[in-house]
Design a protein around this nucleic acid. Structure first.
Length: 413
DNA sequence: AAAAAAG
């Protein structure tokens, strides 16, 4: 085991982490922190839930120093507002004993408070591209003195939807800056593209090369969906013994809103987060899920990346995600920090090909879908969820019934 | 094609 002290992190930050029970460095942290401290540009790749945030966050904070001059010197860019909040909170925790201040900058919020914090001299900014550029063009955010720049979920940030904004942000910072890119997924084409913004980057992969792309501690269960009632199966999963928090991913905002209504009707108090909601609603939903006030979160792709919630035991893909990367990020909301998790994916008839591509890319080795599959070693048939298998799923009296069963509220622990 | 990200 390696301690953060051994990696070169200052005692005050180590103490703050220790208060939260974080004492041992993850492999990605062991590998990136010493290099990042020297100013080496880094592309850091490690599986979901294995400590990437502190892998860049600790060296970033340390290089900014405990008593930096006022003014923005570090910029962390992320793809969603909720992830901005979360990374902000992580950095703020580590920097608690320092004069350096961290500020979250993202849309959907009043400008006033953000502008005030910047004017007050905040040194470290965590934000989403739109609002960052907005404030930069208003001359409220000066990126001319940025020494440290990070793209979290870097492959997403360099994807078509974000690339133009990211280029603008880079162009407003000094070329001499220290640059770090982190993600669980880093396609070769993105790595090549990334070099344009970096100087002699080292690509660090904290993964066993022959281990496969998926998290080993997540069990993948694949249901052929065209002959089953998804609501029925979801109802059973929500009653599964030992179920903790559950995230249900939907393809569209409308579908997410509809399922929330449906589950509410059936007695499940589910939170929902998607882009049709106001920012205050989004934040309330995330908060109630994090605290456990609600243990089901219905989400669009907005919650697929980076979001770190303790005790998420199940992820349900209501439809097949776009590609293998999207699949990995979504299911990576469970099985974090060494825990185990279960990922259930419904494959509609129209999505069979999409699933086959994901199956191939991730090397799951699940045969061509004929019935219903689990990644291993269990082979399931439609709706025939084996009773007592690993105690994961509870058989229900309505099995085989054609009328949708009214789900019962799960007994509170 | 949808979602995300400024308003």
């Amino acid at each position: 085991m390696t301690t953060f002290i051994e990696l070169g992190i200052d005692q005050d930050m180590v103490d703050q982490l220790a208060h939260k029970g974080i004492t041992e460095a993850f492999p990605i942290q062991e590998q990136t922190i010493p290099l990042a401290l020297t100013g080496q540009d880094i592309i850091g790749q490690a599986k979901t839930g294995t400590g990437k945030t502190f892998g860049f966050g600790l060296p970033l904070l340390q290089r900014i120093g405990a008593n930096p001059e006022p003014g923005v010197q570090a910029l962390v860019v992320v793809p969603t507002r909720e992830l901005a909040m979360q990374v902000f909170e992580d950095l703020e925790l580590a920097a608690k004993g320092r004069a350096a201040t961290v500020v979250p900058i993202y849309g959907g919020k009043a400008y006033e408070g953000q502008i005030e914090q910047l004017k007050a001299g905040a040194q470290i900014v965590v934000g989403t591209p739109g609002r960052l550029l907005d404030l930069a063009s208003q001359r409220v955010l000066d990126l001319g003195n940025v020494r440290e720049m990070v793209l979290d979920e870097a492959d997403k940030m360099l994807d078509l939807g974000f690339l133009a904004d990211i280029e603008k942000l880079f162009s407003k910072t000094p070329a001499s800056r220290h640059t770090m890119l982190f993600s669980a997924t880093m396609p070769g084409i993105i790595v090549s593209l990334a070099r344009r913004f970096m100087s002699n980057p080292i690509h660090i992969r904290a993964t066993d090369p022959d281990e496969g792309a998926a998290q080993a501690n997540i069990e993948h269960i694949i249901y052929r969906a065209h002959s089953l009632d998804k609501d029925e199966v979801i109802g059973r999963i929500l009653q599964a013994e030992g179920r903790g928090k559950t995230v249900i991913f939907m393809r569209t905002k409308r579908a997410a809103a509809r399922l929330q209504e449906e589950l509410t009707d059936r007695g499940y108090d589910a939170a929902a987060v998607h882009g049709d909601l106001g920012q205050d609603q989004r934040e309330r939903a995330m908060a109630s899920f994090k605290t456990g006030k609600k243990d089901v979160l219905i989400a669009t792709e907005v919650a697929a990346r980076g979001i770190d919630v303790d005790d998420v035991t199940h992820v349900i893909n209501h439809t097949v995600p776009d590609d293998d990367k999207a699949y990995l990020h979504r299911v990576g909301r469970t099985g974090r920090a060494g825990r185990t998790g279960i990922a259930v994916t419904f494959v509609d008839w129209d999505d069979m090909h999409k699933w086959a591509l994901i199956n191939k890319a991730l090397d799951f080795g699940i045969p061509e879908p004929v019935e219903t599959y689990s990644s291993s070693p269990h082979l399931f048939t439609d709706l025939n969820i084996p009773e007592g298998t690993k105690g994961r799923l509870k058989a229900t009296p309505s099995e085989g019934s054609s009328t949708p069963r009214r789900a019962q509220r799960r007994p509170q622990p």
